[in-house]
């Protein structure tokens, strides 16, 4: 898992870093690094079977009661 992520990051560096330096688009680099960091941290979690980061799917669990209530209302639960 980690090796694949690292391969993708190296590909990104080869394709983009020179262009970013020439165009001085530091904001683009900052956004890209933030996304890479998020992907890297979560891939560490998967690779080592850890659970130290919040799972974004919790947001879907918050709205599940609305789904349940809708199904109950229609008598389909």
């Amino acid at each position: 898992m980690l090796y694949l992520v690292i391969t993708m990051v190296i590909t990104f560096a080869i394709l983009e870093i020179k262009k970013i330096r020439e165009e001085r688009s530091w904001k683009d680099l900052l956004v890209a690094l933030f996304l890479i960091l998020a992907a890297f941290l979560y891939s560490i979690e998967i690779h080592f079977n850890l659970s130290f980061l919040p799972n974004p799917n919790r947001i879907l669990f918050f709205v599940k009661p609305a789904g349940d209530a809708f199904m109950k209302l229609l008598g389909l639960s």
Binding site: V5, M8, V9, T11, F12, L15, E16, K19, I20, E23, S25, K27, D28, L29, V31, A32, L33, L35, I36, A38, A39, Y42, S43, E45, I46, N55, P56, N57
Partner: peptide, 22 residues
Amino acid sequence: LKDYKTVIIPAGLCIAIFTLVM
């Protein structure tokens, strides 16, 4: 952003990793 192509690989990486996490 100046160019959307800068974030193609990082955004794709996030979609891939978060699919497995979520």
